[in-house]
Nucleic acid binder design. Sequence first.
DNA 1: AGAATTTTTATAAAACATTTACGAACCTTT
DNA 2: AAAGGTTCGTAAATGTTTTATAAAAATTCT
Lengths: 233, 233
Amino acid sequence: MNDKQRILIVDDEPQITRVLRRSLTTHGYDVRVASDGLAALQTFGDWSPDLVVTDLSMPGTDGLQLCRNLRAISQLPIIVLSVRGEERTKVQALDAGADDYVTKPFGMDELLARIRAALRRTQAAKLDDVASPVLEVGDFRLDLEDRRLTVKGSEVHLTPKEYDLMVYLISHPGKVLTHHTLLTAIWGGDSVEQTEYLRVFVGQLRKKIEQQPATPRYILTEPWIGYRFDPGS
Amino acid sequence: MNDKQRILIVDDEPQITRVLRRSLTTHGYDVRVASDGLAALQTFGDWSPDLVVTDLSMPGTDGLQLCRNLRAISQLPIIVLSVRGEERTKVQALDAGADDYVTKPFGMDELLARIRAALRRTQAAKLDDVASPVLEVGDFRLDLEDRRLTVKGSEVHLTPKEYDLMVYLISHPGKVLTHHTLLTAIWGGDSVEQTEYLRVFVGQLRKKIEQQPATPRYILTEPWIGYRFDPGS
DNA sequence: AGAATTTTTATAAAACATTTACGAACCTTT
DNA sequence: AAAGGTTCGTAAATGTTTTATAAAAATTCT
C-alpha cells in the first residue's frame, strides 16, 4: 500500500547498530543509523522517520537530551535502549519524553513487538484524521476500506478478481493499459500470455457496469494493445 | 474541567491491587479496581477510564483476552503487569493490543513513569473518544455494561465468544472485515488460519440474530475476503 | 459430575476462477 | 475483393476453493 515505515537507530556502538539494522530491515522497515544525538537530529530533519530507537549513553548529545529535543518538535514514538537498569534512569528517560525503555540485553522479538505497538498507536491516530481512502472519478466511486463500488450512485457487487481489476482501471483513468500490464498487475508475471482471462473478466465487468455491455462506454477496447478506462462525465 | 485522570486496575490478587490503589491515589489519580476481565469490561463501559493496568493471568477472561476486547472498541492505553517474563508472553501481549509490558516485581516509580508516558501520548493525540457504554446501530443495541444485546427490541442471549465477535462487528458497521482481522481481533494472532472458527460462530450468530439465517440480512459474507456487518435500517 | 461452551471434524452446497469453444470483427496478403 | 489468420466478445463447461451446517469431541465453568 504505502511506503515502508522508517526507523532511525541512534547508537555509537557498531555491534549493536549492525544487528539492529539487519533485523529491522529484514522485517520490512526502512532503516537509517546515526551515531550520536546531533547526527540523529539532522537525520530527523531531512528524513522524517516514523520512530526512533536510541541508546542512552553516547558521546555529545546523549539519549536524554535527544528525547527532549525531539519532543520539542515532534510526537513521534521514541524507544530508549540501554544497559542501565536502575529505576531512576528509566524514570528520567520516560519523563524526558521516551515512550518506552528496554534494558540491554534484550530479546529482538520483544523489541520488534514494542516497535509494532508504538507504530500501531501512531497509525491509529493518523487514521482518525484522514477519512477512509476513496477513489472517486467520473461516475465511479470506490471505497477501498469498505471495498465498495458505486456507479452513478448505485452499488455494484464485485468478486475479488473483478474488484482487483476495477481498482487498477480506476487508478489509471484515461490511460491505455496493455494486456501485459494488466495481466502482470492482477494475475502476476506467470500469466502474461493468458489474454483469455482479460477477455472474460472485462466482459464480466462490462455486464455489471455498462448500460449497454455490447457498446461499452467506460471500459474501451484498444485493439491489438489492451484496454482503456474512461470514467465518464 | 480539571478532573482527575481515571485508571482502572485489573488484578485478582488483593495484595497487589491494594498497593497499586493507594500509590496511584496519592499521586492524584482516580482509581477503580476490577478482579477479572469480565468485571473490567463492565467497569469500562460504566466509568470510561483513561488508562488500564492489568494483570495477565486471571480466572475467566484473562489479560490477553481483555486486551483484545478493549481494543475492539477503544484505543485507550493498556499496561500489562505480569510475573511472567518470557519473551513469547510479552510479544503475545503487545500484539494483542497492550501498549506496555512491565514484569513483576516492578518499581513503583517506574510504573508511574510509564503511566505518565502513556497518558502524555493520549493527551497529545487528543484521542479522547468518549466511550459510550452503549453501542447503538440500526436494529442493534449492545449494552457494554451488562453485556446485553437486543435486536429490534428483543433480547438475545450470546455466549462469551459470540459476544466478542458481535462487539467487533457492531463497532465496525459497513466495513469489510477480513478473516485475518476478525481472527486476530477475537482469537488472537495464533489462530489466523482457523477460518472454521469464524464459519461456525458466524453461523451461530446468524441463527440467533437473523430472521432467515439461510439468507442473512445483517451479517453478510464477502466470499474470499471475510464478512461485513450491515446494521440495517 | 453435569451443563454450557468452544473446538474439531465431516459433508454438501455455493461462489468463484479457469478453461474451452465458437462466431464476429478485424487486419494482412494476394 | 476474397482467403487466411488473428483478435475480441460471449456463453458455457470444468475444476478448485470457500462456505454453511450439523454434529461429535474436547474443554471449561459451576
